[in-house]
Amino acid sequence: MSQAKFLLIRLIKAIMVLLAVTVFSFGLIRAAPGDPATVLAGEQGAVDPEFLDRVRARYGLDRPMHEQLFKYVAGIAVLDFGDSYQHNRPVIDLIAERLPATLLLTMTAFVLALLGGVAMGVTAAKHVGKWPDAVITVAALIFFALPLFWVGLMFILLFSVQLGLLPAFGMATIGTDMSLLGRALDVGWHLIMPAATLGLLYLATYTRMTRASVLEVMDLDFVRTARAKGLGERRIWRRHILKNAILPIITLASLQAGHLVGGAVLTETVFAWPGIGRLAFDALLQRDYNLLLAIFIVASAFVVFFNLVADLVYSLADPRIEVNA
């Protein structure tokens, strides 16, 4: 099957998944206790009769169910998620505004976790049974068990409150006038703790997976063949062991990349990071379920997108995978 056809089919599948997510959200709104209009309007909007009427009209709440569903889905298809009363703006604008901050945070955490985790996992496997392995395995075990939001708070406690080294909240220092470089560094400074917090869990995961994968590949026949050819250890590690061990990691990483966008809620809340996770928390407090679900759908869209990327990346890395649905 040609590359183009493969992509087309995967694209259609992706769209169908998104459709399912949208219908699911629609179902959730209906399933929520109370009048759908108040559910969609949010706590603040529900007390404003004019806003309520707009909501009724926008979502066709007096119309039969299938028309409502159609309106809902059609709206989302053109990226119209309705308006947020509390912020007094279209939801899509809100999301678009906050998305870059989340992407910055999650991508940084992801890359650090991936690189660190793979490095640690390979080291542990190379020295299996000896002290570096023990230290790394224990470390991974500990990181795995730490609650994310608590770690963030403890970081703040240590580095902001006690040591006064790092800023506790937000993405940037407001007010002061800075050059572009200065601004970038300022953001970077704010980024350290949240990214470390978010990355810690994934670091543990990648360390474990890499260690297990490398240990498994080390025992395979073709590694023995490579040794029998008289190749040097470094070459064997690079081209034979690691090149094969990395394959399941790539799969896992690509799949996880998509989930990061929706998984930053706790971190952003703890650090008051101005991303869509924080926005979701605000929506939660305000019972603005429309906004909450909109974020939910957007986060799902990212997962779907990254799954597609994952397939492509993997098919490039593993020659055994032919471009097949």
């Binding site: 490579a226 190749l231 090149k243």
Partner: peptide, 25 residues
Amino acid sequence: AYRKVRGARIAMVFQEPMTALNPVL
């Protein structure tokens, strides 16, 4: 020193052709 011998002076062929070759090269 062994590495210089392996492959160059004494070579080996294994049993399972399925798994004895690196699949990604």
